[in-house]
Amino acid sequence: MTSATACAPTASTSSTAMPLAYRPQSTITESPPPGTRAVTNCSACSLHPICMPPHLSTTELARLDAIVCSTRIVRRGETLYRAGDKFKSIYAVRVGCFKTVITHRDGHEQVTGFHIAGEPLGLDGVCSDEQNCDAIALEDSKVCVIPFDLLEDLCHDVKAMQQHVHRMMSGEIVRESGLMMMLGTMTAQQRVAAFLLNLSKRMKTRGYSSAEFNLRMTREEIGSYLGLKLETVSRMFSKLQQAGVIDTNGKQVHILDSEKLAGV
């Protein structure tokens, strides 16, 4: 499954320094309050290898730093943007995680994605010049604000940046098609297994344990994303635990047998 997920990982035993995105939440409170502009140095950020293209020159990095000139703090439960808001910027999650939600005419909410540090938010607004969903913080979070018009100018001059933006947009297409395939062809147990495997892969990319991590979304939110009822999600977690594939304690998940999980 290629869909995005949101969580806070459990650090591995590696001596690698903890990336900013997964430091304890107390570091977030030291940042400027919402709306305050702050210098954001992309070239020095621990997430640079994840959310920006490699091999940029010193000059190109300086131009990128000049574009990403502010950050915004979004507290748990607060909204970064809402459906219908005018599209002006895309955002890079620097700390924390978000869910994206679409509200149907009858008031029913559908979770369409989970986004963690190093991933973009807001690309859905490019096609219509307005946001098509709500982006809500699942924990105290921080995003880098990237004005899209300035990013377009940079892409015009820096081919590597243009290619990176194209990859991000392509990734959204792949994510959507993967979700449709999952909803149309997988059983409930396979959906939950694919969700956990995708999460495991993303944690490994960020230098954390691929076997142990903490979920930031609720079982109900997972069910909304996977097209399952809350009771079904809980039952599938219990079934996988009884089979000795995973071990769960609240929102903490420990994958005991990744090969068996992939074979569900």
Rank of each mutant, 00 (worst) to 15 (best):
E152G: 00
M203Y: 11
A8F: 13
G107F: 09
K229C: 10
A188L: 06
R191A: 15
F237N: 09
M203Q: 14
E176I: 07
Y81M: 05
K251D: 12
R82Q: 10
K99C: 05
I246N: 15
S43Q: 06
E78K: 02
R202N: 09
S234M: 02
L56D: 00
N214W: 14
V174P: 01
R167E: 04
S128Y: 02
L179Y: 09
L230N: 13
A193Y: 14
G244R: 05
G96F: 07
F195M: 11
Q241K: 10
S70P: 01
K260R: 13
Q241N: 14
T40R: 03
K201G: 08
C69Q: 02
A11W: 12
C97Y: 03
G118D: 06
S234F: 01
V158H: 06
G250R: 09
A193D: 13
V245W: 01
L47Y: 09
E221Q: 10
Q162T: 01
V39Q: 15
E176T: 07
D129A: 11
I222Y: 05
P32C: 08
E212W: 01
A160L: 02
E231F: 09
V111D: 07
R63Q: 15
K251P: 12
G171H: 02
A262I: 06
V174T: 03
Q162C: 06
V68S: 05
F114L: 02
N249K: 12
L261V: 14
N214E: 14
Q190C: 07
T187E: 06
D157S: 07
Y208V: 10
V93I: 08
T218I: 08
T71Q: 15
P32R: 09
N132W: 04
V143M: 00
S89K: 10
C133D: 09
C155D: 00
N198K: 07
G263S: 14
M203C: 13
F195W: 12
H156I: 00
H104N: 14
T248L: 14
G35Q: 03
K159E: 01
C69M: 02
C69L: 01
A62P: 01
T79W: 13
